[in-house]
Design a protein around this nucleic acid. Sequence first.
DNA 1: TATTCGTGGGA
DNA 2: TTCCCAAGAAT
Length: 334
Amino acid sequence: MTATSAPTSAPERGAEPAPAAPGDSAGPARPAGTTETVPAGAPSPEELHGPVVEWFDANARDLPWRRPEAGAWGVMVSEFMLQQTPVSRVLPVYEEWLRRWPRPADLAAESPGEAVRAWGRLGYPRRALRLHGAAAAIAERHGGDVPKDHHHLLALPGVGEYTAAAVASFAYGQRHAVLDTNVRRVFARAVTGSQYPPNATTAAERKLARMLLPEDPGTAARWAAATMELGALVCTARTPRCGTCPIARQCAWQRAGAPEHEGPPRRVQTYAGTDRQVRGKLLAVLRESLAPVPPAVLDQAWRDPVQRLRALNGLLADGLVERLPDGRFRLPGA
DNA sequence: TATTCGTGGGA
DNA sequence: TTCCCAAGAAT
């Protein structure tokens, strides 16, 4: 793989609206376009960059997908696995995947069912299917190399705004706003002064992330990784370790006295008794069986036949399960 | 915009 | 034990 070339995507600049914010002529001067996004008194980008990046240099975890030998494919595999799944559970599966399928074409040559099986219990197995599909698309459309262009990345199955930016940034050193749940929380606290970010990513958050992004691509990539790591290790959701935070003194939330979240409690996803749990039970049976499974075996995975059938049909519709002519079931193409 | 989609570990 | 919630994407 070649080293980082010039960023191919358009720099995330110029999207900020002209100042012209009415009614603030009496207030202190602020940079254009920061109105409504950055509260008065919030730390400037320069106050945050140094401490956060220095902290990262000293405290970054040695994760396999951060090592140079991981390559863009390793970064992409890790990003898929880390979507909603903790690092500790991803580690062993990641190692196994890269050992088995060191290049996208290796995975593409495999059946989708094998990808689902090797996904193990990481959860959300559709990600395995999408990663397999992404590998196939990379093999077919990109000569077997993970594309560098943000636009091409976004076109791959399972790659959304976050993952496209993460791969472009971490694998290729490009300048992109990388907005994951960690970064959103760090910005919400340090800059906006809120304990938690909004439920869904807002335009204001994207704008803020772009404004905080260092100009130099390499520095921007470093900043992206550093803010994520800070959110993962220090500025955690439940009990942040503000005593060890490199920007605790600049933090708007700390300065405001760390006020508790106001408003309606954030919805917690239920799981017990849902279709998701049933799907999980059914798929676990199929994952662990090398031979196709008769319907009677699946019947034992869940009591309620109505819900069981609904879940099975969902799995079939998603392409996670295949029904053979003889009525037995298996992972797709396995 | 709101839902759906797994799983397991820490507090 | 129960309750959160963990590097999102697709619809």
